[in-house]
């Protein structure tokens, strides 16, 4: 059995994460009990601020976190196969072939001393055993697919010879080289200019639909998440605090943190020059977790119970969950705010 041989008829979800916890150096619990299911052909956005555990969760799926310093608990299955039980060899087959990843900074992710074409053909030959000519033809096809202008010539370019947007397209081509079923994207548009960012977001959406990719998209930008994802999961202090369809999370949030994120956006200000609504304080120290809900010290709805007991995820709508003791009150507070905005406008 090979790790990459995903039975095409299997009905297992593309990625299924249960009770995932990741601890660094025995102290810092960066991810704390994450459950995440990615259906086939679905796009899920993991959003959160720095240190919320979104990238760590993503990397855990390919077991990319440094083994000797990291303790991973829980279960991770890709197309029904247990990633936690895989040998080094099986992992090598999984990475790049069944699951591929794109990163925020392509200049760091690509090898500076080889042409991009060489890097792509190497991946294809290694995983699929094609000849140099066949691999090169596939690479060219991929470059056309991600719409790199003059693709033939660009295959022979080094990463530093390309512009930022072009490099990101090349990295997407590299990720797609072995026809993966799952694409993991870690802030792929954060370092790009606005007019280029939207091009890459649209390309990802298009590729996802056409190739039937299952995608997990990590970002801190709600707008980018809405553009590409069917579902959104909001992370805070290593936990998923709210998840649902993009509509549910953005239009009727039920967790005070999600509401804070939506309200503190500069475009959400009621009156120009008036003060922005903010989330007071700062995220908790992950090395010294306190009992109760990690958001409680910053929460406008916190009651005694929030500081003592960790809230379970409750269903607030079909497929819409929030981990909050006061999710009903939170939803009501958001609706009130919307009415206030409408009254001013």
């Amino acid at each position: 059995m090979t790790a990459s041989a995903i039975p095409p008829t299997s009905s297992d979800p593309a990625v299924e994460i249960r009770g995932l916890s990741v601890t660094f150096g025995g102290k810092v619990r960066a991810v704390d009990g994450v459950d995440l299911v990615l259906g086939r052909g679905q796009a899920v956005a993991l959003i959160g601020e720095s240190g919320s555990g979104k990238s760590v969760t993503l990397r855990a799926i390919m077991r990319l976190n440094p083994e000797n310093k990291t303790k991973i608990e829980g279960s991770i299955r890709v197309a029904g196969q247990d990633v936690m039980a895989m040998s080094k060899r099986e992992l090598t087959r999984l990475r790049g072939r069944a699951v591929a990843m794109i990163f925020q900074e392509p200049l760091l992710a690509l090898d500076p001393v080889y042409t991009v074409g060489r890097q792509i053909t190497e991946a294809i030959r290694r995983h699929e055993g094609l000849s140099e000519t066949q691999a090169r033809a596939r690479a060219l096809e991929l470059f056309e697919r991600v719409r790199i202008p003059s693709p033939q010539r660009r295959l022979d370019a080094y990463p530093h010879e390309m512009s930022g947007g072009m490099r990101q397209r090349a990295m997407i081509a590299l990720a797609l080289a072995c026809r993966p079923k799952v694409l993991l994207a870690d802030e792929p548009t954060t370092a790009l200019d606005a007019t280029v960012q939207i091009q890459i977001l649209l390309l990802l959406r298009e590729l996802q639909a056409e190739l039937g990719l299952s995608t997990i998209f990590v970002t801190h930008d709600l707008g980018a998440a809405v553009e590409v994802a069917d579902r959104i999961a909001v992370m805070y202090a290593g936990r998923i605090v709210e998840s649902g369809t993009a509509r549910q999370v953005v239009l009727s949030p039920n967790h005070p943190y999600t509401i804070g994120l939506l309200s503190s956006r500069a475009d959400g200000a009621l009156v120009k020059g008036s003060r922005l609504e903010t989330i007071p304080g700062s995220p908790p120290d992950l090395a010294n977790r306190k009992p109760g809900c990690p958001f409680a010290p910053r929460c406008f709805l916190a009651i005694d119970r929030c500081h003592k007991e960790v809230p379970p995820t409750v269903e607030v709508g079909p497929g819409h969950g929030a981990a909050c003791w006061r999710s009903d009150e939170a939803g009501a507070a958001f609706r009130e705010r919307l009415e206030a905005v409408a009254a001013v406008a």
């Binding site: 707008g223 809405v226 953005v250 239009l251």
Partner: peptide, 12 residues
């Protein structure tokens, strides 16, 4: 080019 925040009205 700014991403829309409206799931019903995504950039095309």
């Amino acid at each position: 080019s700014m991403p829309s925040l409206d799931p019903d009205n995504r950039t095309e």
